[in-house]
Computed example of a mutant assay.
Amino acid sequence: MTKIFAHRGMSTLAPENTLSAFSLCKQHGIQWIECDVDILADGTVVISHDDTLDRCTDCSGSLYDLTKDNLRDIDAGSWFHDDFIGEKIPTFDQLITLVNKHKLNLNVEIKSCTSGWKMTSRLLDNVIQALEGLEPNRELIVSSFNHLALSEFKRRRPNTPIACLFEDANLWEDWHSILEACQAEYIHPEDINLTKDKIDKFRSAGYKVNVYTVNDLARANQLFNWGVDGVFTDIAQQFPSKYKKQ
């Protein structure tokens, strides 16, 4: 069955990577969500695409200077719409609770932690610990652009399916070697310049293919006809019922 991943939640209806954005998935019949995880100074895993606050909150500065207590004073919703004034940056534990409640499936993108390997390793440990709270019947994929971190995640939690993320600019001919080294089950390529020939090669090598970020229904239809398993999109609410849970 083809998959529609709500990229950072329903990110054109609510501020990205917030509980509001993820909560909207159920009412729109979307079963899969994609989120980004990073770490605070005290080890708290949070949902955030950026490692700074500047773009999606009312504050400025680095995530790596914050603790969990700081989150209560940061508004992650008023930039988007008045309806979301006071929205908070969620912790990963909070998202796990929401996913279990709404019976959603989860793609977790581990961010390439820019504060060094020590914090990256701590991020992996704390993500793995939080995932123990995920109900066993929830489907899960863990992905990353940082293939070293992803390989280490797989070593620590070998039964979790993982996906190597690639931008068009670094999707070189060694992709197969990288997926083998990581022991990945999925490849998640960028949509730009993606061809049927490339997809055929991924599938012939035995990998499942989910493509990001597809915000055009005709392009999504073309990709599905080429055999991709899923697409990440900011406009999940616009996809017709054939792609949604009935």
Rank of each mutant, 00 (worst) to 15 (best):
V45N: 04
D51G: 06
A6P: 09
Q31R: 08
K111H: 03
I162V: 14
G9T: 07
R72Q: 11
R122S: 06
A184I: 02
K111S: 03
F92Q: 08
T44W: 04
I85H: 08
G86D: 09
S151H: 07
K103S: 10
L66D: 00
L148Y: 03
S115A: 13
M119H: 13
C25L: 15
F80C: 11
F239R: 08
D83P: 02
K201A: 13
E167M: 10
K154V: 00
V142W: 00
K118W: 12
D200F: 09
T233M: 04
K244C: 06
D38K: 02
E139P: 00
L24G: 05
V214L: 07
Q31I: 06
L123H: 11
E132M: 10
A181L: 04
D174Q: 09
G29Y: 10
G43H: 04
G29V: 12
N17R: 07
W172F: 14
T2W: 15
K242E: 10
V231H: 08
I74W: 00
F80W: 13
A76S: 03
D42P: 04
D42E: 05
Q31F: 01
V45K: 01
K244D: 02
E87Q: 05
R55S: 04
F232N: 01
Q246Y: 13
Y212T: 14
D200S: 12
N193A: 11
I128Y: 10
N159D: 04
K88W: 07
N215G: 07
I235R: 09
A181Q: 05
S112H: 09
A181D: 02
P136D: 01
